[in-house]
């Protein structure tokens, strides 16, 4: 046995080397750094105000209570918020994928007329933003303010996602498209029957990107929507949190007083409630996710 091998053997404990143990410990510490705050959020959402005041860094409350969740769900607005978000997601996600994939496909083809100019226009919007007032004026002139469509349309196209997808499409062999063309397929047929079936990783990734953006979106809804019953989940949660911590000096002081509760508990409960659906959704796309980001990010 060589000296090198002997040295390696000396640091081996069972099947693992010393380096494995060090890495194991480092990874556990890193995992705890992520998990502890998460656990703390859940613990606070289940704690009473007094318990939280006594020990804000708790990992689990001594006397768990569902009061914060009860207060959140007793408020019918939460379900309305979920429903509105689902509506935005159900319409917005396919629309986003359609708009993004069609443009990405067009711009990924070498012979597409005006490709460079159109790509420049797209890129320009990433660097220079028109601002919220022009956007509002556009929506107003389309008579879309106060409608869920304003939120859907504003979030339905991302230049960044389009570039990711375009790069992925550019990596697909041109010969595939050419042979499809020889078989009489048009560009739409090529996109839907040849390109998209081969683009599962990037489609999964972009689906996740758009899905998370629609789920977590609040700004567009805040700007464009006017009715309480139209607000999506994130805006509803924000309203509930703001109300629960309203300073009782405000106008309707007695009413505000009756609404005030353990605001931190409600805040943490709302964080958890809004996180759960995304947490359920993520593992289904995870296997495609890392691959999709990498392949889309590297121009081949």
């Amino acid at each position: 046995m060589s000296t090198h091998a002997e040295k390696r053997h000396k640091y081996r404990v069972g099947k693992m080397t010393l380096l494995d143990y060090i890495m194991f410990i480092v990874l556990i510490v890193l995992a705890l750094i992520i998990l502890i705050p998460f656990l703390n959020v859940i613990a606070i959402s289940l704690a009473s105000q007094k318990e939280y005041a006594d020990n804000p860094m708790m990992l689990w409350p001594k006397h768990p209570t569902l009061d914060a969740y009860r207060a959140l769900f007793e408020d019918g607005r939460l379900l309305t918020g979920f429903w509105n978000t689902i509506k935005i997601l159900v319409v917005g996600l396919p629309l986003s994928l359609f708009l993004t994939s069609t443009m990405a496909y067009g711009l990924s083809r070498n012979k597409f007329p005006g490709k460079k100019f159109i790509f420049f226009l797209v890129l320009f919007t990433m660097i220079f933003n028109g601002g919220i007032v022009p956007l509002y004026l556009v929506m107003k002139s389309l008579h879309l303010t106060g409608s869920l469509w304003s939120v859907i349309l504003v979030g339905s196209f991302s230049a960044f996602n389009m570039i990711l997808m375009m790069n992925y499409f550019q990596g697909l062999p041109e010969s595939l498209m050419e042979s499809a063309r020889l078989d009489g397929a048009g560009e739409w047929r090529i996109l839907f029957s040849v390109v998209l079936p081969l683009a599962a990783p990037i489609m999964a990734t972009i689906t996740l990107f758009y899905g998370v953006a629609f789920w977590n979106g609040w700004y567009d809804a805040m700007i464009f929507l006017r009715k309480a019953e139209m607000l999506p989940l994130q805006n509803v949660l924000r309203t509930i949190i703001v109300e629960s911590s309203t300073n009782v000096s405000n106008a309707a002081s007695v009413d505000a007083l009756n609404k005030s509760g353990f605001s931190t508990g409600m805040k943490m409960a709302s964080v958890f409630v809004s996180m759960v659906p995304i947490m359920c959704f993520f593992p289904m796309l995870q296997k495609h996710f890392a691959k999709g980001v990498l392949t889309g990010a590297i121009k081949t």
Binding site: V133, T145, M222, I223, T239, V242, E243
Partner: peptide
């Protein structure tokens, strides 16, 4: 025709409405 303004977006929303004539 009731329009709801959330507390945290009050200044921004009114500024937008006023400036855009809405």
């Amino acid at each position: 025709d009731y329009n709801y303004v959330q507390w945290d977006s009050w200044p921004e929303k009114l500024r937008l409405w006023i400036n855009s004539g809405d």
